[in-house]
Design a protein around this nucleic acid. Sequence first.
DNA 1: TTCCCTTTGTTGAAATTTCAACATACAAAA
DNA 2: TTTTGTATGTTGAAATTTCAACAAAGGGAA
Lengths: 224, 224
Amino acid sequence: MEKYFEVLCMCPLFRDIAHWELTKALRCLNARVFSFEKGEAVMNESEPAKYVGIVLTGSFQIVRTDFFGNRSMIANLVPGELFGESFACAGVEVVPVSVLASEAAEVMLIDCLKISHSCSNACQFHQQMIDNLLQIVAAKNLVLHQKIEVTSKRTTREKLMAYLMLQAKQFGSLEFEIPYDRQELADYLEVERSGLSAEIGKLRRQGVIEADRNRFKIYKPFDV
Amino acid sequence: MEKYFEVLCMCPLFRDIAHWELTKALRCLNARVFSFEKGEAVMNESEPAKYVGIVLTGSFQIVRTDFFGNRSMIANLVPGELFGESFACAGVEVVPVSVLASEAAEVMLIDCLKISHSCSNACQFHQQMIDNLLQIVAAKNLVLHQKIEVTSKRTTREKLMAYLMLQAKQFGSLEFEIPYDRQELADYLEVERSGLSAEIGKLRRQGVIEADRNRFKIYKPFDV
DNA sequence: TTCCCTTTGTTGAAATTTCAACATACAAAA
DNA sequence: TTTTGTATGTTGAAATTTCAACAAAGGGAA
């Protein structure tokens, strides 16, 4: 378990929890580590919402697939990030999304009830973790607001530019990589892949952006 | 302040806080009540995110307006519901939305920092409120997921039916009222009002739904 | 290198949405 | 009752997206 300490120390769930207490905490929480191959699911739609997952290595994608098989990309998760916590904390019976490994990856799963319920050992860290969880869940809210901001645009071009500008802002640079391939980006923007490719081509020819696979560069930020 | 006790007791923020403690809590939190006319804003985009609002009477709408004036409807709030808490808890500087009174309405505003920071009087309820906040913010997450589920559909017809089915499910009846007029519903679904009206007309003629102003009735739940 | 498979780009037709403009219905005020 | 203003419905043309099908490019494995 020790080899994951570096990630766990950076994980916002354990913020302000002393290093020496972390080992005890993980045992108390009955934290367990699982490995996944690319494409495998940690959670599937309609499974009970009991666990909080912490990405240790690799990356995962939160995806929602509707009745007709249409896929919607919600978010990409990198080491240190959590998933499942909102559903567990809201007390819903089943999760409405799937969490898929986008490459070989590892997660730590914790029973969410163990976080909020103080254990018989009277561990001190529970309260701190609840405070942390509140911040994390609130931050997740912002991520969803952001997706809504992007997808509320009416054209593929506007959606794409809105997304790229946000990425540029977050990276602090007009040149950056995104965690999605074309199909995944289309699923995030809620548009057709072919239409997205066409639009990227047009923006490229117009000299607004440069795009090579998942690497983008914005030339004219305001030519939306 | 006493006249609002009934709403406040139902408000999830004060869940499991004794009735006798509520008065003390409100004073400790420096809670203040404000009134608004229809259309007035409690919060405006780009204002600091410090306050948690509790709807006391009337109703409010959470709205986001982009650079070009396109309006996006996020949610409708009725008495007992909160707003602003996610932004305050996530520690963002400014709120990314506006909160507008959709009729004459009253809110109670609380400085969010006062909730998490125990006061010098060593009030007992702070911890309970943080637990409550966590559940509330997590539930907000579900509301956003729901909006994403609806708006991720590709056609106006599918979006509308997805929304109506969700409403029917929440009401526990195929006949119900929605809190939006046509323009507001279009802003929620992220479609054009005229196209929405046209689609409602078509569904009506096809005998799938009945619609009179904001009153809907679904006849054939699965003819999407 | 060649082969194979996946990803990305392209294209044209069909379907859908947006946009602008106007008609109608409804409700409040005069 | 009439007037007035707002909400809703309708319509056709222009713009955009979807869909299906295929082409081109890239990356690994043999």
